[in-house]
C-alpha cells in the first residue's frame, strides 16, 4: 500500500504540506512535512510534489514520477535542486499510522484528489 501522486491533478495549494506537518507537530506549520509542494520555479509555472519515504525520495513532476534512492550518488548530468536538501533531513512518511480516523492526512485533505492511496 503506497501513496500515489498525480502531479497533473495537483493545483499546488500546499494542503498536503500543512496537514502532514500537523500530523507531526499537533499545530499548523510547514516545517516537518515529508510531502511538500515543489514551487521554487514560480516564473516558469513549474510545480509538482516531493515525498520523502523511508529510503526513497519521490519527485512527482508534471512529466512523470521519479524515484530516487536516498544515499545513491546523484546523476551528474542533472542540475542539483536546493529544495531536495531540507527534505532529506526530514522524517520519512509513516502514512499517518497514528491517525486512525483519517489514514494519510495528505490523502484525506487534498481538495482535488491528486494524492491517493493504493
Amino acid at each position: 500500500m503506497g501513496i500515489q501522486i498525480n502531479a497533473l491533478k495537483c493545483n499546488n495549494c500546499m494542503a498536503c504540506e500543512m496537514v502532514c506537518s500537523y500530523h507531526r507537530d499537533d499545530g499548523f506549520a510547514f516545517l516537518s512535512a515529508c510531502i511538500v509542494s515543489y514551487r521554487a520555479k514560480e516564473k516558469k509555472d513549474y510545480f509538482g510534489m516531493l515525498l520523502k519515504e523511508e529510503d526513497v525520495l519521490i519527485v512527482a513532476r508534471p512529466e512523470g514520477i521519479e524515484i530516487n534512492k536516498i544515499g545513491e550518488e546523484a546523476d551528474p548530468d542533472k542540475e542539483a535542486d536546493a529544495s531536495a536538501k531540507p527534505m532529506l533531513l526530514r522524517e520519512g512518511c509513516d502514512r499517518c499510522e497514528d491517525m486512525d480516523d483519517y489514514g494519510p492526512m495528505c490523502v484525506a485533505f487534498c481538495p482535488v484528489d491528486a494524492i491517493t492511496l493504493d
Binding site: 493545483n11 499546488n12 495549494c13 500546499m14 494542503a15 500543512m18 509555472d45 508534471p62 485533505f109 481538495p111
Partner: peptide, 9 residues
C-alpha cells in the same frame, strides 16, 4: 496550467 491559492479547492 491552473493553480490555486493556499488550500483553495
Amino acid at each position: 496550467r491552473h493553480s490555486a491559492d493556499f488550500f483553495t479547492p
